[in-house]
Design a protein around this nucleic acid. Sequence first.
RNA 1: GUGGUUGUAGCUCAGUUGGUUAGAGCACUAGAUUGUGGUUCUAGGGGUCGCGGGUUCGAAUCCCGUCUUCCACCCCA
Length: 456
Amino acid sequence: MSNKPSIPKGTRDFGPQEVVKRNYIFDLIRKAFTRFGFQPIETPSFENSETLMGKYGEEGDRLIFKILNSGDFLRKVTDEELNSRNAASLTPKISEKALRYDLTVPFARFVVQHRNDIDFPFKRYQIQPVWRADRPQKGRFREFYQCDADVVGSQSLWQEVEFVQLYDAVFTNLRLRNTTIKLNNRKILSGIAEVIGAEDKLIDFTVALDKLDKIGEEKVKEEMLAKGISEDAISKVQPLFNVTGTASEKIKTLKSLLSTSEIGMKGIEELEFIVKSIDKLKLKSAKLEIDVTLARGLNYYTGAIFEVGAPPEVKMGSIGGGGRYDDLTGIFGLKDMSGVGISFGLDRIYLVMDELGLFPETVLETTKAMFVNFGEKEAMYAIRSMSALREEGIAVDLYPDSAKMGKQMGYADKRGIPYVILAGESEVKSKTYTLKNMKTGEQKTLDIDQLVSELK
RNA sequence: GUGGUUGUAGCUCAGUUGGUUAGAGCACUAGAUUGUGGUUCUAGGGGUCGCGGGUUCGAAUCCCGUCUUCCACCCCA
C-alpha cells in the first residue's frame, strides 16, 4: 500500500453526483450573468509572474503558486544567488510563470491588452478555477472556482445597484434564502481615517475594525492601539462601534461623524444612492445591510465594497464579494478606467447548499430510464427504441449485459434511475414497453408514443 | 507562515497498562429467487494498522521525523 494514490492537499476529486450538483449552480449563475448583459471571457490558468506578483500585497505573493521554469532552470543562477537562500530574489530567476490567484487581475490585464477591440463600457463574466497556496480549512481550498462579473469603463452607480440585484437574483434562483449583502464604501473608511488623523494607518485600522463582530469592541481597540493608533483617535470614532438601527439611521450617524471629511461625505452619498435605489426596487430573498466594519478584500477597492454572508444557520465565511476599483488597469498602464465587479465563491455556495439540502432531487436524475437487457434480439429492439427516445431529448440507457434481472434492477436502483423499461419477448412481439416506476413500483404497458410522453 | 488535531478493510469506526492468527457495521461478490430492485437469511473475498526510522524478546499501541485530514490564527471565496 506504499503506492497509495493521492492528490495534493486542498484539492478534491468530484464524483458524478458532485459534478451534477456543481453544474446546477454553475448553470444558474451563468444564466443570471447572461440575463444581466454580461459577456463571457476566459484567460489562461497561468500568467507571467510579473502580471500577478505585487498585486495582492505581501501575503498574496506568498500564496501565489509559482511554476518552475522548464529545462535546466538552475543554469543561469549564480552560486552566490543560490547560497544566499533568499527565496524572494531567487524565485524570479527560476520561475517566470504562476497560476492565477483570482480572476480580477487577469481581467485587468485582458482589458489593457485588448483595449482596442473592446467596446466600453465592457461587461464581462468569467467562471474559472483559481489557485492559492493556502492552508486548507473549512470552505477553504487550494483550488477553487470563482464566478466573476465586472464592468469597466463606467462610473455610474447604477452598476452597483444592478450588482446588488444580480446577487439577489442568483441566490433567489438557487433557493438560497436569507443571504446578507453587506455594503460599505472605501471612501467612508478613508474619511474615518482622515477624521482621526491616521490616514497612513488606514489598512491597519480597517483590518482591526473588520473583526468587530468576531472579537468584540475591546479587542478591536486593543489591536488598534497595538498598531499605533492613538487612544484619542479611537475615542473620536467611538460612535462607529455602535452604528445600529435602520439604514437611514446609520447614514445619519455616519454623516455627523464624518461631516468634516469631504471624501467621507462622498462615500456616504454613494452609499445612500445605492441603498435608496434598492429600497425602491426591492429584493426578492437577500437582505441589503450597511456594514461600516466591512473592510476585507483587496486593497484596490476605492468605492463600494460588497460582501455576501451565508444564511446565519450555516457557519461559513463569505460566499461572495466585490467592489469598485477606480484604477485597476492603471497598474498595467491604462489610466482612468473605473471598474466594479462581484464574485461568487462556487465551492462555498456548494457547501452551504449541501448543508441546507437545497439541491432539487431531480438534479441527480441524470438518466431518466434504463432498459433491461433480455438478450440479443431484445437488446436490438431496445437500442432502436432508445434512438427514438434520445431524439426526443430523453436520457436513456441499456444495461450492457443480459445479466440476471435482479442484478439489472439493483443497478438501476443504485444509480437513482427513476424508470426501468422492460422489453422482453412478448413486448417485442406486440411492439410495446413495460414501464416500471422505481419509486412506486407501478408498471404499465405502453406503445412508443405513450412512452415518449410519459418520460418527457 | 503560527498553534492544535487526525490517520486501522471501499466507507464509518472498535481494538484493554505493549503480548498468540487485528475486529464490527455498512458496502462488495455469490446463493436462497430461470421476467422484477430497495427488506430478510446464508456463505465468501478484502487490511504489511498513512509512510520512514527508533525503543523492545515482542509495537496498531511508546518515541522521533514526514505526509495527510480537520480546526483556529494570519489572510481570504
